[in-house]
Design a protein around this nucleic acid. Sequence first.
DNA 1: AAGGAGTTTGCACGCGAGTGCAAATTATTC
DNA 2: GAATAATTTGCACTCGCGTGCAAACTCCTT
Lengths: 337, 337
Amino acid sequence: MDDSRFFESDTVTADDVAAEAGVSRWTVARAFKKDASISKKTRQKVLAAAERLGYAPDLLAASLASDRSNLVAIVTDDFSNPHKLVMLERLTRILRREGWGTLLVNMTGDADASSALLAASQRRVDAAVVIGTRFDDRALHTALGARRVKKLIIFARLSQNPNTLNIACDDQAAMRAIADHLLARGRRRPLFVAGPDTQSAKLDRKPGFLAYWRERTGTTPPAIHVSQYDFLCAIDGILPALEGRAPAEMPDVLVCENDIIAIGAMDGLRHRLGLRVPEDIAVTGFDDIPLAASPAYGLTTYRQPITNMAEALVEILEGKRSGDAILPGLFVARSST
Amino acid sequence: MDDSRFFESDTVTADDVAAEAGVSRWTVARAFKKDASISKKTRQKVLAAAERLGYAPDLLAASLASDRSNLVAIVTDDFSNPHKLVMLERLTRILRREGWGTLLVNMTGDADASSALLAASQRRVDAAVVIGTRFDDRALHTALGARRVKKLIIFARLSQNPNTLNIACDDQAAMRAIADHLLARGRRRPLFVAGPDTQSAKLDRKPGFLAYWRERTGTTPPAIHVSQYDFLCAIDGILPALEGRAPAEMPDVLVCENDIIAIGAMDGLRHRLGLRVPEDIAVTGFDDIPLAASPAYGLTTYRQPITNMAEALVEILEGKRSGDAILPGLFVARSST
DNA sequence: AAGGAGTTTGCACGCGAGTGCAAATTATTC
DNA sequence: GAATAATTTGCACTCGCGTGCAAACTCCTT
């Protein structure tokens, strides 16, 4: 291996490749561009020269010159849910495969949304994808940064904001599947356990479940909110609502807004209240995080179509889609019901 | 609110601000630069003008013009460990606070390392931080992309590669703390459960534990490897090693390389083998992921000093540090021992 | 008030590549 | 083989801002 180049002035530009290949700089650019008008032979020649020199196009300069950067910002404010990791993995993998870079921006709380979007826009991202739980949906379009971002996409949530695009799971269909399953198993007294009730883009899970349950049984189930999407908070939020209830008053299933809450609920039920799941009380979640499949939990849940959602995102980025994408997921029955 | 600007030709440049403030473009740049030679009064004037126009410096153009981008790539290949989420959160938060952007690159397997680093270098990152488990450490410096990256940092692992910098937890000190604790609790027959034995940058946990245990007791404990850092794989990897052992042959503690393996181990012990933790067998982990604190696991573990590690990274980025950073963490005793 | 030190401001040039159009080359037709 | 169409190549200009240096200015001293 020739390591001498390692210490050379490293930056090899399109000009160098052009000289090496005996063509002009613009021909070099064409060789690297899909569907460019260039002959096969020339492209081969240029690519070979580039290979020899170790050239790779500078995406920064390209972004500056053109009006697209092939960069998308993922702006998120909640790192306590393992499901976020699943989404990040899927998004980064698919985006990279399709030629997009990913800027990860940590939005530290509601007040930071504006500054987080600004930070993204300063890097000229082609789109910002918000995967958050605590931002103020309504304030988004007045945010300093938001109006500088070409496309603003709310991922895995539903926003009413007319300036944003939604990519989400079909919560209503999901909750119908869950409710049908529970009714078939003879559950009659559900308690819906939702996450924090913020101003952010919402989920359709709670309204979806309550409405459909009412439609099927004539009664609207009770619901509570826990303070954060975090299983310790879930335990703390759920126990006060259950302790001291007469047996007949106890719900026979906790329908949780997501898996993290459901897992906190199971832990609380088992280890604090000494109840058995599913014998004494059933539990359902949402997301199908890896832990849901563990023998300790065996959580009945609903898997979001993350891959399809990521592909919908790509369609939006490529301008092939201009409307919301509300996609169906997959109901997963396990032992917790 | 005046929304008219929303539809205007949006890009307001330093020239516009200069005109508005009645100064030159370069003075505008100075107003936005810390420690620049500019009078307080002029800076105020410029910032006010910028505010009025909604101007923010274009970091892309800045990166192109200068030789730094204030961008760092986080290159990772393992999204199944919730601890990754903790690291990502801490890194992105601290980096952003210090003025650095974060590019997240999903490295899909060993063979992809070169291309992942290339992708990062094409965006002119000032450094690439590798947080991986499956890449080939030795091949890193021959990687096409690696030599185009100014600084290559291995995070939370130890690399022998002379061209990289390591930022990691002091595994040896950690394992001493764990061993001391176990010995004090009367455990005598540990089984070390490590992750996959790859060519990637290693951890010092297994050698550290075995050596120290031998030093204290005169015997080297046995060790096994599981195929992935994933709790289902951990269950599958551990059970065959334990099933069918005579009681006297059973280890009295599983010392696991990280929490994910430990949690898989606990699940397997309890739900497959019907053993009690810690009565029949103790378990220790590493990382202190959120789930470790749940009542269901109460895992004794060791917390990596992620915040300090992130700050060490910033020091490296700023050129204030040029050597490895091996930092002490915190031993956390819970009910699993 | 002149001289000098220290501070503040302006400017030419370059970073690396995309765009749209014109020139040059090749392929096709009669 | 000439004329035409189709393809391929080259180029001026631009994107928004940093660098290093020189000019201009402020303030203080004597």
